[in-house]
Design a protein around this nucleic acid. Structure first.
Length: 317
DNA sequence: AAGACTCACAACCGCATGCGA
DNA sequence: ATCGCATGCGGTTGTGAGTCT
């Protein structure tokens, strides 16, 4: 147990608020190239004006290649409900039963959808919620028996039982990878490797040596392409200069500044532009140069990733 | 059309935990 | 055993988008 927590970062000199596409790309590329042994040192090394914690969160919750976007399936929701009935607000634990889902996402889904739904189903969600958090009553699980009895749920219950029996021993984790265990995988290797066969869901981004695993659930691009391992200043300048973004602009940059920026990289960049919401139709994003603090952390970019939701095959909204 | 209200979710905050020195 | 550091985790907040009036 540590004592005397050092300040996470110098808040005066650190950018906060939503991440810009170029920051994302910078982080992705850096982690792909160097891994993330040291989150605290990473922002400086990657040339990001962010605190390490923020980088870690951004990576784990959004940029990680195996993170699964889009609406939760009925199965997933059921699993959350059952897991929450047993584990309470142990979001990271619950996340370990839902590969590709992050604790943050699950927490949000619970707070915004499932809690209310349960509340309307059995009258008083809040009471239940409180009691669930502390009790691990099997009756709660039993009460959920009206939900689909799918393999995942059976596996989950078995996992929970063994989990309880082993009292959270990491070696007894279920097959599903938790966000932390996934990130450990990444940490242990020097470079990002998402080729773990246990990870069924396709990655948000494809990293070198990996390819998209198109799933029925999630709408992903069909073409596979690699993230360019380009890290020189010109590359970032090029990225930042995409205002407004125009597809053919890449070509010109390609010719004049980045001769090694090949077709695959262009494809990747195009996909990234879409993924990050750099819609050419609406004039693209206002890319601010890195290392220049914004006037306001919550700048004009807003939650740019909310503007494009490519993985919403069965949108609830 | 416009303001008020609600929702959804990314990001932040600070404590807990693990680990090496 | 203690300390210091890095990371993990869960609660909370802030903001944009959507909906209602």
């Amino acid at each position: 147990m540590g004592k005397g927590r050092a300040p996470c970062c110098d808040k005066e000199k650190v950018k906060r608020g939503p991440w810009s596409p170029s920051e994302d790309l910078r982080l992705i590329t850096f982690i792909q190239k160097h891994g993330h042994q040291n989150w605290r040192a990473l922002p400086k090394q990657a040339g990001l004006l962010r605190c390490g914690k923020s980088c870690r969160l951004r990576w784990i919750n959004y940029l990680r290649p195996d993170v699964k976007r889009g609406n939760f399936t009925k199965d997933e929701e059921d699993t959350i409900i059952r897991a929450h009935a047993t584990l309470g607000n142990k979001w990271s634990k619950i996340a370990s039963y839902l590969p590709g889902r992050t604790d943050n996402e699950i927490k949000n889904v619970w707070n915004t959808h499932l809690k209310k739904r349960l509340g309307s189903m059995n009258g008083n969600a809040d009471k239940k919620d409180e009691s669930m958090a502390t009790s691990s009553s099997s009756s709660c699980v039993t009460s959920m028996s009206s939900f689909n009895d799918k393999k995942t749920n059976e596996a989950f219950e078995m996992a929970v039982v063994s989990d309880k029996a082993n009292h959270g021993s990491p070696s007894e984790e279920p097959e599903a990878l938790s966000s932390s265990s996934i990130s450990s995988n990444v940490t242990n290797s020097n470079q990002v490797n998402v080729s773990n066969p246990e990870i069924q869901e396709g990655p948000l981004f494809n990293f070198t040596g990996c390819y998209y695993n198109t799933s029925e659930e999630v709408n992903k691009p069909e073409t596979a392409f690699d993230i360019p391992l380009e890290s020189d200043l010109e590359f970032w300048n090029m990225l930042d200069s995409l205002v407004p973004f125009q597809p053919e602009g890449i070509q010109s940059h390609n010719e004049t500044q980045c001769p090694d920026f090949g077709e695959a990289e262009n494809k990747w960049l195009l996909y990234l532009e879409q993924e990050l919401g750099l819609d050419p139709k609406d004039g693209g994003f206002e890319a601010e140069p890195l290392l220049v603090p914004e006037t306001n952390g919550m700048g004009t970019l807003g939650h740019y990733h909310n503007t494009v939701q490519p993985y919403e095959p069965n949108s609830k909204q």
